[in-house]
Design a protein around this nucleic acid. Sequence first.
RNA 1: GCGAGCGUAGCCAAGUGGUUAAGGCAGCGGUUUGUGGUACCGCCAUUCGUGGGUUCAAGUCCCAUCGUUCGCCCCA
Length: 418
Amino acid sequence: MGTIQTIKGTKDILPQQITYWQYLEKTASEILSKACYQEIRTPIFEQTPLFERGIGEATDVVGKEMYSFVDQGEHSLTLRPEGTAGVVRAYIQNKLFALGGIQRLWYSGAMFRYERPQAGRQRQFHQIGLELLGSDSVRADVEVIAVATDILTTLGLKNLSLQLNSVGDQNDRETYRQALIDYLTPYKDDLDADSVDRLSRNPLRILDSKNPKTQEITVNAPSILDYLSNSSRQHFEGVCGLLTDLGIGYQLNPRLVRGLDYYTHTAFEIISSDLGAQATVCGGGRYDGLVSQLGGEKTSAIGWAMGMERLILLLEKLQALDDNSPDIYFVSRGEKAENQALIIAQKLRQNDWKVELDLSGSNFKKQFKRSDRSGAKMCLILGDSEVETNTIQLKDLITGEQQTLNQEKLVESLPSKK
RNA sequence: GCGAGCGUAGCCAAGUGGUUAAGGCAGCGGUUUGUGGUACCGCCAUUCGUGGGUUCAAGUCCCAUCGUUCGCCCCA
């Protein structure tokens, strides 16, 4: 094919699917707004160091997945691979902290990661996310999780499970990290190659390896939950307790490790059993260190992001498309009639009717065929004889009954919808 | 970055070395003039992702390349 195609890992969202997107966006934004989160829109690209410093140089996202380029001014820029860093940058730059103690923000938009596409994974994908800045309260953690579950259940999604863990603060993690290395080192020869590699770079990540042999080894590995300081443990237990009070079920998962460096304390993922290998539908956690790391005042914060494509994959399995059929299919023939039909159609639309005008100019038979296929329940007919008498025919496409109406009184004479 | 499968019209799809590339859906036109969902008829790929090679002969075999799908890695 000589024609230009979409870039690998990107997709057009076609009219057939757009109803799902609109449904998702509407549902989410309503729930977010009820919880008093406000939308924020940040640029789709940022200075590269924002992500390097924010997400962590050692992470895969920064190390090998960023779409970075140098512009004409020789600045290194990057298409955002995630949303949090940009929002935090905006929070600091615009001094949003000055507006009051707590900021509740949400965003949605395209993210970019240079990865091999597969089910539920694209190079340009969309996330809807939320950030709650300025609170270290247990209730903040729980509020944020509750908003997420609220969105997902309102969407009607099932077979989801909330995985919960705490990765502690920096000290907790350091002692745990050492304990884990001590435990795993004797098994070094039995670990898979990737895990051996991670032993020195990022041993926590070995815990969620899918390699069966590695999994066997890590079954008895020390748990991070045993290495939490008193205050870290208190926080985490508080979160668990409140979730239970709210009736939100969860599974403790000490192996849950998020891929981005900035997470502290609470980490969670909501996974679906109805997707392929990329089953995480929502991921997030607390990031008390990020704001200061990016040059702001020390600020506690927590947030999450949902993968919109993955949600839509689930929605598509769940429910049929909305009906896109017009209320009225408009059949017309003859120059005068065709022009007149255009004018009448416009008037009907202004009166809240969904009207599809047949533009083909083909004979009535063909137009009726199309009116039938459009799914409309009725059609209007305007031809030479109607123009002469100032009338219009209304045909009920289900019963086949047809009546003559006065053009002037059309809007009033139409049956009520539904 | 690694592994496996796939790539024939808008969509689904037969075809596995031999003259003219099944079929279905959709689309378009028609079965005489202004009436639909059925039926019937006709049209719709000089060409099989692309480039090279093997062969008298390739959609069919080989190589490369691109794309796609699923998985690893990683993540939403």
